[in-house]
């Protein structure tokens, strides 16, 4: 990996460790081993339907980060949500088309946490079965159509 991407990731890591965001925890040990693979734990916010639950996100970065977006998916227990497929893929425009280099790991976590918080019922996307059977392992290889970013 070339220097600029790594330098930027180290800076982001330091920022998240010194100014932690509520409900968002970084697996420091894992990141220390490989700066290009992060595991982030997200706590369901209070007074939302995910209160008391925790989920894990996996971030993978390539050498073009932050110009290229990170690959982000849920691993382990997958939250039941209308924009999250049962294989962990997340339908969120900032992860592909609307990614900008001014975004960051923290900003992505915040978006995903607020996406969870605004849900009013737990349900899978209507096309979950067909998608998870036919999609690529990498969510960035899906050409998403974002119908509604407000949910």
């Amino acid at each position: 990996m070339s220097c600029p991407a790594e330098r930027r990731l180290r800076k982001e890591l330091l920022e998240l460790l010194t100014n932690p965001m509520p409900g968002i925890y970084i697996d420091e040990e894992k990141v220390a081993k490989n700066i290009n693979e992060w595991i982030v734990t997200i706590e369901g916010a209070e007074k939302t339907i995910y209160e008391g639950e925790t989920f894990q996100l996996q971030f993978s970065f390539n050498e073009k980060y932050p110009f290229d977006s990170p690959t982000v998916l849920f691993i382990g227990k997958i939250p039941v949500h209308s924009h999250i497929y049962s294989n962990g893929h997340i339908c969120l425009s900032i992860l592909t088309d609307d990614w900008t280099p001014a975004l960051s790991v923290g900003a992505v976590c915040l978006s995903i946490r607020s996406m969870l918080s605004s849900a009013t019922k737990k349900e899978r996307p209507p096309d979950d079965m067909i998608y998870t059977r036919t999609c690529s392992k990498n969510p960035k290889k899906t050409k998403w159509f974002f119908h509604d970013d407000t949910v």
Binding site: D127, Y131, C135, S136, K140, K141, T142, W144, D148
Partner: peptide
């Protein structure tokens, strides 16, 4: 929210 989920996607991106 939908995606065209056949493997065309991967080919197009490639």
């Amino acid at each position: 929210m939908e995606q065209n989920s056949d493997n065309h996607d991967e080919l197009t991106i490639k």
